[in-house]
Design a protein around this nucleic acid. Structure first.
Lengths: 186, 186, 186, 186
DNA sequence: GATGAATGAGAATTCATTCAT
DNA sequence: GATGAATGAATTCTCATTCAT
């Protein structure tokens, strides 16, 4: 990716999260990125294309950092905790990207075409779920509920540590995971 | 409250949730409410005042429906479940108001002055928390964490049942609460 | 005139002078006058009618205070000084009315119909002029020039004493008149 | 200065003089200037900035044309007449600029910051005044009064010749100056 | 007479987008 | 590729005027 293109993505990530899509003008993005407005439209045909490309970029960033593989040698709880930790760490380390995905996942600016382009984290979760059910480790609740609960928990925890950064340490992370685990495990 | 004022609040609640603050024009709000644009500005000096008054209104609506009292005769778990249910039911019955509070609670359009005007639900939660800790019913985690976890759980559950309305029944509500309870209880 | 009608005239005189015609809203006039907007439009069909009636009112006020008669017994200079003094005193004592006439005499809001309704001070001036020319007291310059010079002088003097109110005394008034007199007299 | 910027200044000069600040819409200015409304706001951030920049521009125009130097070789009267003529000629040749300065010099739209940026014509006048007093050529009246009288006279004369353009000739200009000179000289 | 809620055309200003350089 | 002047539709907000009470 060209340097200016990257700068535009970075600037718009920050601004879209802080002020929303309609609250951010392309002029501001260009200014923040240190380029001319014409340059922005050279790389991104429209503002909508910009936010869609930004969505692809952030989602890829996240999936890249997650990319876990279920490890049969480890205990089931370890496997799920590892996945959980990866999401939480991504959220804590890349708060803008995390918040962007959170905010714009359901927004009308992200076309369904874009959404199709990113494989969801559902697949890896589905494996874990089936395994957990099979081994009778987790309660018999629907896959959708577990998915939503897992993700909701990640969001809650990331948001919490963003509010109270001084609380972010291994012990509290472990405790936070136990809240999730004790909730879903048998 | 005057009839037209109410219609404007209703219309803006819907539109702000669906399209965001900057994504909704005052002309659209007025049209949806069935009044002239001038009328909107007769009741609300600026668009910002409108969203702030809307915030006060929705928050009051919620607190009005929650307004629980801790009942010593009931078991601790019953008490906390009742509070949880009230929030979830509010979210399910008033999805726009619930989503509005969720989206705009942290938005820069809501002034701190407005936020001061609504007593948070923290107070009732604090009573329950202390009681739970005292009776050694809940894990020894910080109050802030319990608060965030409780609220995050409510959000997750409401969102889930909005996605899958056919799943909304007593049994699934109970199961959803158990996810929370087993997480935070000793 | 009804009390509220008078209050509206007073309020609009002040506001039109301070902020101009378009810079003053009827709502502000009503508020300053202590009446409802509807009341303003009860007494004055339109904003334009208001400023036209205000023009008639201020012009009448002035002409009423001027209303001089040429006195053959007095010296020619005395006669003209008396007229000059009356204008200057009106300007100093009723600065809003004076400024209003000054500003709106040539404005497009005052219809020619309105202007016709007020006899100008030209008539009395014409008498003086002819007399002055006849007695060979004043230079042989056109009537129009004398008129404009006389009136320009009044405006200059009134404006000057408004800027430096501490200088307003008999001596300085006399000196100011001499500037005019020595200019136009032979 | 860019071509479109100049066209906007020219158009607003005409319209502000003819209809006043609030009586002129930015849309009209843009239309008259032959540019889009957006272009106006590209060069002038607000309507207020426009009128302030216009004030600087007109005042500079005038001072540029005046820029006299007292010439000791000439008679005192000649010197003062030359200055007077320059002002009158500016007013006659640039009636819009002259009227604009006249109307907006005391208006609240022109910020004091703007006024500071233009050196007044007072300085050259002060030199003439001191010289005149010193040579016992002019009456012993305050500097402020002479200033106001001189300027008031210029305004009167310019306005008069605008009303009666057919009267504008050397002879009448001389006569008009004599009105001023005989007024202030000993 | 007096009120002020209601109206909608019009005001100043913003902004995504284009295009000549 | 890069720039930023230029555009005009859309936005927030104002205001003269009306009319039911």
């Amino acid at each position: 990716m060209k340097e200016k293109e990257q700068k535009i993505l970075d600037a718009s990530l920050k601004l879209f999260v802080e002020r929303g899509f309609h609250g951010t003008s392309t002029a501001e993005i260009a200014k923040t990125a240190g380029v001319a407005t014409g340059t922005l439209f050279h790389y991104f045909k429209t503002k909508e294309e910009l936010i869609n490309r930004l969505y692809l970029y952030t989602k890829e960033s996240m999936l890249c950092e997650i990319s876990e593989h279920y490890d049969d040698k480890k205990a089931f709880k370890e496997n799920i905790k590892e996945l959980w930790l990866k999401f939480v760490r991504f959220g804590v380390n890349s708060p803008y990207k995390f918040q962007f995905i959170l905010t714009f996942h359901c927004s009308p600016y992200i076309t369904s075409l874009t959404k199709e382009q990113v494989e969801s984290h559902a697949e890896s979760m589905l494996g874990i779920y089936k395994n957990g059910i099979g081994k009778q480790k987790i309660k018999e609740i629907s896959f959708e509920m577990v998915m939503d609960y897992f993700w909701g928990n990640v969001v809650t925890v990331v948001t919490h540590f963003e509010k109270y950064p001084e609380k972010l340490n291994e012990k509290n992370l472990d405790m936070a995971f136990e809240l999730l685990w004790d909730g879903i495990s048998k």
